[in-house]
Design a protein around this nucleic acid. Structure first.
Lengths: 230, 230
DNA sequence: ATGCGACTGGAACACTGTTCCATGAGCCCA
DNA sequence: TGGGCTCATGGAACAGTGTTCCAGTCGCAT
């Protein structure tokens, strides 16, 4: 993997020795179990039965740790998607599969969404960029349009990612979510139809809409736009 | 404005009395001058010549303050765009104008980008949603496709917004930006062309690309997709 | 004039990321 | 075998954060 720093360590020290891998693993567990706010160096120290100083020997700072954790999750998604049935499929289907893969990963680990929209040009984003951009030639997109097309798709994905993460931050429970959507819808209905006709009208669809389907609809919209410009 | 809380205060107290407006105004000044990390309740207290307790009487917490600040900026953009020459123009042009308006606002106040991707269903986002969604009927988009179309456009905008804000956080200077892009491009060129053909190939375009133009290209792509599905 | 509620300023609290350093484990060479 | 010497560790200390708490002050209605 070109992205990784060179590492020449052959199982030194105790078997339970600290390592960036072990730290990232523990961090992901905390993030998944109790959310972004639960990941502190104290919590991490406790879980790894060590001190914060030891962790800092392996990890530059918290941003570094979060980037590595997000990279870990995304890398798993990308290798999973690429090695899956998709590799030989139609390029359009491959792009959809990657997008859905990233969406589902962020749905399962909302903190990844926050991280993706927070640190740009990060290795996690490069992987997504490559996965999508690499399929564009096969789609018949002219070379000079590929950069813009890939950027549009990735930015859309990042937008949804951030929004999903923000939603997850607001309510941990599934029941919270529907209740919250109900509240928002109720507020939207009460907007003045003269000033906010669209928001007013769309309020009802808010409750019954499916995030995943809407996400895919957006991907298809962009793909249609890419196709029409061909 | 339906979004604002009811407010029945008629110039009480001293002329320099604290108020949510004055606090938000000062917060925006700090954010614009010295970036997101500079906005602390201590800095705000100092600038307003008061204590943090006084601020908390007018503002629920920091999130509330940031939301109000972002709302302020976006509201100005939206009224500016709507009252501009655009109001009677072709709906497609109106949507482009709104998107560009939001983009430029985030370019000028990067912290707004962070805020937009952080707190969903917020009044700032509702305004953008309405501004864009309200033009879709005139574009000939069927009613049941409008929600998805608006959501796609807004999420794309939010994605770019977050990314722009992250970039701005990384380097304050314009010279920093080009230097940084150069570094990233240099790294991308060195990616193994067998494993990362797209990223490798696109690296050169990275340096000379214009964020604003690429953003607009993405909007046009989505608009083309919306048009083709009509 | 006086009481009362709206408002203020700043001290105190709990908690964060990060740094610093005294100590220990394992290895290499004499 | 024993001494260095580096890698690695754990935890105390630091600076700074958002937030709470509360003793006051001010202006108005009575």
């Amino acid at each position: 993997m070109v992205l990784m720093a060179t590492r020449t360590q052959r199982t030194k020290r105790r078997t339970d020795a600290l390592s960036k891998e072990r730290i990232v693993e523990a961090a992901i567990e905390i993030l998944d179990a109790d959310g972004e706010s639960a990941l502190t160096f104290r919590a991490l120290s406790a879980r790894l039965a060590t001190g914060s100083g030891a962790i800092y020997w392996h990890v530059a700072n918290k941003d570094d740790l979060l980037a590595a954790a997000a990279n870990d999750v995304i890398a798993r998604v990308m290798t999973g998607v690429v090695s899956g049935a998709v590799s030989g499929a139609e390029p359009q289907e491959a792009i959809r599969a990657i997008a859905i893969g990233v969406f589902d990963a962020i749905d399962a680990h909302p903190w990844v969404g926050t991280q993706l929209s927070r640190e740009p040009w990060q290795s996690a984003m490069v992987q997504i960029f490559e996965g999508i951009g690499g399929r564009l030639p096969a789609l018949g997109v002219p070379a000079r349009a590929q950069f813009d097309a890939a950027s549009a798709l990735v930015n859309y994905i990042l937008g949804v990612a951030g929004q999903n993460a923000a939603n997850a931050r607001l309510h941990t429970q599934e029941s919270d979510r529907t209740a919250f959507l109900g509240t928002v819808a109720a507020r939207w209905v009460q907007f003045d139809p003269a000033e906010y006709p669209f928001v007013h009208q769309v309020a009802t669809q808010l409750i019954e809409h499916d995030d995943r389907e809407q996400f895919l609809a957006g991907i298809d919209l962009i793909l249609a736009g890419i196709g029409s410009a061909r």
